[in-house]
Structures are given as structure tokens and as C-alpha cells.
Simulated assay, not measured.
Amino acid sequence: MNSKKQIIMIAAAGEDNSLGKDNDLLWHLPDDFKRFKRLTYGHKMIMGRKTFESFPKPLPNRIHIIVTRDPDYKVDHDDCLVVHSLKEALDLIKNEKAYIIGGGEIYKQGEQYADAIELTRVHSTFEADTFFPSIDNQIWKVIAEEYHPKDEKHKYDFTYLTYGRKN
């Protein structure tokens, strides 16, 4: 077991860094959903309230740490913790791996704390109201990439990009 705290931002974003519109995804990529599940399964996930509310129900075998400014916000589910700042969320991560899963504002705040970024780059542009922050190539470098062409289940081609911090 890795005994060091590791914070990973995970997202799927269009070429223009589009993430979503009206609190919904802009595409349906089943293989990306499978990858998200495989990477986050068994780990803590930090998210904003709107991201959490976009799920039909909490995702199985993951602790959901929900960041909201609403002091009265409550979630009645064992796998959900409500906090009121990103710092408070990060304080709940001990010597373990955790994922920042959105939305746009949480990604902006979380980038400075992230050790890695798992980005699915969807090769198209979209009309969106939420965006992933631009990745600064002075700070981040691609350490792995895997291209996935569009097919009968995937309307867009996309690339899995793993970024690590430059030293």
C-alpha cells in the first residue's frame, strides 16, 4: 500500500477544455466511464456539490467528499462526507490516493495540490458552461497517453493523458 498522500485530478475535457453544460456531460464514452470506475474504485473522491448532485446516486465503493459553501447542506448516505472548503476536504485525505473529480471551480482550486492529472481529451469542441483549467506545460508533462478512436459506442475519438508534475 502506498503510504504517501496522492491527489489526482481526473476529468474528461474537449479540445477547448469543455467539461459540461447545465450540470451534465457533453458526450457518452462508455470506455472512459469504465476507466474512471477502475481508477477511482475504492478511493476517496473530492467533488463540488453540483457534481455530486449530477449523479443519480452515490457511486459504489467510493467515499464522496462533497465541498459546498452551504452550511446547512446534508447528505444522508454512509459514503458521503460534506465539507465547506477544499482545504477541509484535503485534510480528510491521509496517507492514501484520492481523486478530485470536479467541477470546474474545484479543479481550479485543486490543481495546486494535485500530484497528477488523469485527463481524457475528447477530440472535438463543445458548447459548455464549465471548463477544465488550462494545463501549464511549464508545470505538467505527459507521462502516458493512449489513443482511442471513435467507434460504434463512442461518437468521438479521445486520448487518455496522464500528466505528472515536472521536477
Rank of each mutant, 00 (worst) to 15 (best):
G104H: 06
T130L: 12
P30K: 10
E53N: 14
Y156M: 06
Y107N: 05
R121V: 06
F132G: 05
L81S: 10
G103M: 00
K57I: 06
V67F: 01
Y147C: 06
R38W: 11
F126G: 11
Y73K: 06
Y99V: 01
N23V: 07
S85M: 02
K87Y: 10
E105N: 12
G48D: 05
Q112M: 09
K57E: 15
G103A: 00
K37R: 15
H84C: 03
A11T: 06
A89G: 09
R165L: 12
W140C: 04
D31V: 02
I46M: 12
Q138T: 14
T120R: 03
K57A: 15
K4L: 13
N95F: 05
I139T: 13
K87E: 15
D78H: 13
E53M: 14
Q112G: 00
K5D: 02
E15G: 07
N2F: 03
G104Y: 06
W27L: 08
D91V: 09
H123R: 14
L92G: 00
H43K: 14
R69N: 10
I66A: 02
W140K: 02
M9F: 04
P149K: 07
D32C: 07
D24C: 09
K50L: 12
P149D: 06
A89D: 09
Y99L: 03
P30R: 08
K37F: 10
A114S: 09
E96F: 03
L39D: 14
K74L: 10
D115S: 00
L92H: 11
F52V: 11
R38E: 15
I7V: 11
K166C: 06
K150C: 12
D151V: 05
A128M: 03
E111K: 12
D129T: 09
G48H: 09
K153E: 15
M9A: 15
T125G: 08
T120M: 02
H84T: 04
I46T: 09
H154T: 02
N17Q: 14
G48I: 07
A11P: 00
D22W: 08
Q6R: 14
V82Y: 04
I7A: 01
R69D: 08
P60F: 01
P133I: 07
S85F: 00
R69K: 14
D76C: 10
M9I: 10
